[in-house]
Nucleic acid binder design. Structure first.
Length: 287
DNA sequence: TCGGTCAACCGGCGAA
DNA sequence: TTCGCCGGTTGACCGA
């Protein structure tokens, strides 16, 4: 476990942990270990440049000459390159591979293990950065969509207000046989707006000369119902209700589709009874 | 001089 | 108990 632990505290260092020499094999001085000093790698520029690794003899020569133990040095580019290649193959380090790499690189197995640990930590940080960037991109995209939806919502609400005013005006004009109801809160949704548009269209059709019998009517509880001879006016999942019996607008039952009642979700009643229609009014159309 | 990078260490934890 | 890994930290090095 302790293989590779540094054994010398720097004479000049204030660090409590500041061991500055790496040990390798036997040490003639200390008996058990010998320091392998790592020298300046490819960078440097310091006046005391030396090869990355120095033999113990040279180390002690210099050490005793200068009374200053070496400080930790960076690995050479060749060592890093080989370590990187090995890391790419497998980011975990088996004991055999550790020894092998250490021998190949002239490093202590402990150094190789430490390098892999640090490399994994760096990789993890990079991965976190990548994940963060990805999440941020997703967030930005969602934010953009959200803003667009908000604007759309605002636009539709404005449209809704305009339509409500028009409906109110149409109400006041008192179209014969038809009552146009006011807008309630339920009409705030986009789907409601769609129906409202349909209603507007129908009102316009109805008020125009030669309109063909479609009507917007007021049902109890402020619900809005569309009486239509053409289901195609309605959006998907919305169906036409014949309201003749309910509001007293009669149409000829010619046994065509116009005489049928259509309800959401596939509910279908042909030639309905008035009670039946009234019972369905609450959830029809605006549900 | 300062901030970033990197080798190395420490303490904790889990597996064998 | 040993061993290896991980997160956090330290200190040397280096470029701006």
């Amino acid at each position: 476990m302790d293989s590779g632990r540094l054994i010398f505290d720097s004479a000049s260092s204030s660090s409590s942990r500041g061991p500055l020499l790496l040990w390798g094999g036997g040490n003639p001085v200390l008996g058990a270990v010998s320091p392998v000093v790592v020298g300046v790698a490819e960078k440097g520029g310091a006046s005391k440049r030396r090869p990355f690794f120095t033999s113990p003899d040279e180390v002690y020569e210099e050490y005793y000459e200068e009374q200053l133990p070496e400080k930790k040095r960076r690995l050479t580019s060749e060592q890093v390159h080989l370590l990187e290649r090995s890391f790419k193959e497998e980011n975990k380090l088996e004991p055999e591979r550790k020894s092998e790499l250490a021998q190949m690189l002239g490093l202590q197995p402990r150094q190789v293990a430490v390098w892999f640990q640090n490399r994994r930590a760096r990789w993890k940080n990079k991965q976190l950065e990548r994940d963060f960037d990805q999440l941020k991109s997703s967030y930005d995209a969602l934010l953009f969509d959200h803003d667009a939806l908000l604007k759309d919502n605002h636009r539709l609400r404005s449209q809704l207000s305009t339509l409500a005013e028009k409906l109110e005006e149409a109400n006041e004009q008192g179209a014969s046989g038809v009552t146009v109801l006011t807008v309630d809160d339920q009409a705030a949704s986009t789907a409601d707006l769609t129906v409202l548009n349909i209603q507007q269209k129908k009102v316009e059709d109805m008020l125009s000369p030669g309109s063909g019998g479609s009507a917007v009517v007021e049902a109890d509880g402020g619900h809005h119902l569309v009486e239509s001879s053409r289901e195609s006016y309605l959006p998907e999942n919305y169906h036409c209700v014949e309201l003749v019996d309910v509001v007293g607008i009669h149409s000829e039952d010619d046994m065509s589709d116009e005489g049928c009642s259509y309800y959401p979700d596939g509910m279908f009643t042909e030639h309905h009874q008035q009670e039946e229609v009234e019972a369905q009014l609450d959830w029809c159309i605006w549900n």
